[in-house]
Structures are given as C-alpha cells and as structure tokens.
Amino acid sequence: MPGDTDNRRQSPDEQAGKGGKNSADSSGQEASYYDVPMLKPPVWQWEIATYFFLGGLASGAYILGRLAERFGGEDYREITRAGTAIAAVAAIPCSPLLIKDLGDPKRFHHMLRVFKPKSPMNLGSWVLTACSALIGLATVREVLDSKQEDLPTEAVRVADGAINISDIVGLPLMLLLGSYTGILLSATATPVWSRNRWLGPLFISSAMSTGAAAISLALEATSEAKSPAKDALQKVETTARVVEGAMLSGYLVSCGELNEPLTKGKFAPHLWGGTVGGGFMLPELLERLPVGGKVRRWIKIIADMSTLLGGLALRWSILFAGHDSANDPEAARQASRPK
C-alpha cells in the first residue's frame, strides 16, 4: 500500500508537538513541525547488514591469507588456504543479498551501467565485482595447488604467478571492499552516520578482526596441534580488535548526542552485548584463561565464533540505528544546525 512506510506511522509525540531544545522561534517556543520526521529512513534491511558483514569478512580473510603467504612462508600456507576458502564462501552470497535488497532486482546490472566513483555505491559495485573475480582466481589457484601431482607444473606456476601479480591491485581493492560500506553510510543525511570519518576505519578494522577470527576458527576446527600460524593469528586478532575498539569509541564520541539510537535505543543490546561484550571482551578474556589441552581448543573455537557474531552485531546495530536516527526529527534538526 502506498504510504504505509515506517515514517508514516505517527509517533505519540507528534500530536503533542514536542519541540526541539535549542532553536527557539520568534514566539519563544521551540521551532519544530509537530515532530513529523524531516528525513526518510533508509530502505536497507537485514540483507544489507549481512552483506556489510560478509563483504568485510571476505576482505579481511583474503588480505590475511595473501599477507601470510608473502611474509610468512611455508609455515603459514595453511592461513592462505583457509583465508581463500573463507573469502570464497563469504563472497558467494554477497551479490544475491544486494540484488534482493533492490526495489527492482531485475535491473541489478544498472549498477555497472556507469563508472561513477563519486557515488560510494557505484564504486562499491565495481570493487565487489573485481574482488569477486580475484577471490575466484585465488580459489582456482588453491585447487590447482592441492592437485599439483596430477597437473603439469606450468599450470600451477601460471596460477601462482597470476595471484602474486594481482596483489598490487588486489590488496588495495580488498581494503576498499572492507571499508567502502562505512563510507557509503557516512555519505547520507542520516544523522547518526552523516559525514562521520570513523565509520570507514571502524568497518575495515572489523573486517580484519573477523577475517582473522574466521581463519583461526577454521584452523582450530581442522587441526589440534599448536602451530606458528595459530600464534601469529592470535596477535593479528588482538591488534585488529584493539584498533576496532578505538575506532568504535571514536565513532560514538564523535556522534555526541546523536549516538543515542545506537547506545540507548532498541539496538543498544546488539552493540553493548554483541559487539563490545561478545566481539571484544569475551574473546580476549577466554584467550587469556590459564587452561590447556582439549579445553583450550574448544575455548578458542568459542572465542572465534563470538568475535564473528560481534562483527555481525556491529553492522546490524549501526544499520538499524540509522533507521531510528532518520525518523527522529530532533536528531535531524540537531545535525543540520549551522556549525
């Protein structure tokens, strides 16, 4: 039914004409329009929150896999194998999710009708396309590597060479894949996102922490033995998590009062419980428990899964807080005051 959108529903405040706090009008009352929303809420739903998470995961896992091979050598090859597989599994649902979200899905290819880097969504479509191709190439190469004995050495060497050369453009593209989603949100008028500089850095650091957690989870699930790869991953995970925590704090502080839909609204439990509790605190705590043997392995598995859920909760809470933020006329008035 036309007009049956979120913001058409009347808020109880609307009838009372509850006004803003600061800008008084000529008659001394607060300037406001019956608390009718000034902005439209985003049309993006769970598909987009999930895509933000999976795109980040694919980017982080791929980057770590490539770095492990380049800088770590043979001992770290298992990270590359797991990282490539995770990137592939995470990337497969990305495009279908984005297409499902469109109002007119059969026109999904219009996204690549022009190259318009000024629009983060257009740039992101091109980046996702290129990254999907790269992940595909890396996957083919891993498959060839695993069947080395049955194949002519040339085929394996060509694949190895191709993937090594691709890193020059591949790694920057993957960084874009993990961060453009945050920049996309910041290029909107939605008060809790608008023009925020911390969202991109927050999303890329979350991409790295979830990527590391997913690889670590895959390694723990497939082998019990301790390995240098697992130790190095642990350090990567903790570093990314610390940076992510710093970026999240910076984001929330920079929003000021506008962060309320996120810190106090319906999605506050997702942020505090899911991201801060489940994504940062629980895994760091679990990994420091003085236990060994089989229990240690299970604890690590739980910590990694918790990190992944924390990364999903981060995208989820930020996306849906945007809905509440855009529907709140007081937030819109506050965000549009002259600086």
Binding site: P37, L39, W44, F108, A189, T190
Partner: peptide, 13 residues
C-alpha cells in the same frame, strides 16, 4: 533500480 541511496542522501527527506 530502486537501490534507495538517494532516499538516504537527501537532507530534505
């Protein structure tokens, strides 16, 4: 194609 980006980008709703 109904991506909805313009809806969120418009500062006038």
């Amino acid at each position: 194609n109904g991506c909805g980006y313009c809806i969120s980008a418009c500062p006038f709703g």
